[in-house]
Each structure stands twice: as structure tokens, then as C-alpha cells.
Amino acid sequence: MGDVTRAEVCAAACADLFAGAGETLASPMGLLPSLGARLARLTTEPDLLLSDGEAFLLTSESTVEGWLPYRKVFDVVAHGRRHVVMGANQIDRFGNQNISCIGDHGKPTRQLLGFRGAPGNTINHRTSYWVPKHGPRVFVEAVDVISGVGYDNAVGPFHDLHRVVTNLAVLDFGTADHSMRIVSVHPGVEVEDVLSQTGFPLHHDDVGETRLPTDEELDLLRTVLDPAGKRDREVRE
């Protein structure tokens, strides 16, 4: 299938986020999470539901199969059968995420989007994160504003942070105190690279290598889902 790019490894890692999801609404924010969710649906998770980002649920053949305006998205959020993959301007070791602003909220040095749905998503259903540029400005000791709720602030019965996929590695919170650990580094990445690009200590006792996409996945990515190769512009080697 030719040389596998880093972006293709990331897409497969994003697809793996949805393993076992079944009839769940996948809400991927951004290109790589979207490719991952669509890849999962075309391979191992045929029952996933996906919207067009507006108000329609579309099958993998782009047939409209449902109506999901924002108010009904909020119903699914509260109902819980949803897995969102959000971005993060900042994220800390317990998975607290910031998309609100940088600096003091009263007078930010940089205003971002605002809380959006991050507080409700993280308190209601499974949440993962996608970080296309893994670095110490994103992976910080403490976030300036808690938009998405991390494990040390989690309350209620439904909080469920799953994984963080970046251009370097796959991480999760499967430690005794739910602080972040490296699950796997992408082929060509050293554990040291991930540690040096992260602004807090990471557990790294049992680090694997992120799997390569299968031939079927590569074919789908290259010929069906992203023939223009946008993925390789978002994630470079």
C-alpha cells in the first residue's frame, strides 16, 4: 500500500476510539477524528451514527437517515449514548481541558471559543481528545479555565474520559489516580519525544507502538474518505 503516513496512523488510532461503541452517536470535531469515525463505521463499527455537522444523520452512503438539529444533540448529550472527540487548547494530567480562553478569564490574553458544550459533554458521556500538535503549550501543568472536566474534578455517575490521540502518541487515564499515561507511541516516535513535549510527568511503564492501519483502512482513507489527502496537511511527519 506504499509508505504509511503519520496522519494515517492517527486516523486509525482515532478509529480505535470507537471500538465497541455500537449504536452510538459519534461526534468527532476536526478532520482526523472525523476520518477516524467514518473509518470505524466502514470497518469494525458499522452501527455508529454520524451527523453531517449540520442537522442530518447520514449513512456511510450519505443517505439521510435522521434529523439531529442542535436541540436534539443536547438531548443525546443528556441521554448519554454519544462519544465526542473534542480539541483542546490546553489539557492537564487529569484531562481537564480548556477551549475558553488563555489567561485570567476576567481579562484574557487570548479569547478562544468559550465553554461550548465541553462541560456538559464531559459530565454526561464518553469523551476523547484529539491534539494535532502535541507540545508543552497544550499539555500543561494546570489549565487556565476548566471547560471539559478532568478526573480530579469529576462528579456524577457518567463522567468517562477515554483517550487522547495526538500526532505523537495515544494516551489514556488508566492509572490508579487517573493521571495520564502513554498507551502507545506512533511508529518513528520515541517515548522521550512525548515526555519532552508534555508539560507534566506522564506514566510510561508499559508503552506499546501504535498499530499501523490495515490495507483495507489505507485503501478507504486514500480512495474513499480523503482522496485529496487533507489528512497529511493537518499532520505532518
Binding site: 464531559t122 471547560s147 456524577g156
Partner: peptide, 11 residues
């Protein structure tokens, strides 16, 4: 509503 709990919305 559950949304807001644990986040900085309330702080």
C-alpha cells in the same frame, strides 16, 4: 441539569 458540574462555569 448536570452540565456545569466540576467545570469552571460555576467557579
Amino acid at each position: 441539569i448536570r452540565a456545569g458540574l466540576g467545570s469552571d462555569v460555576l467557579r
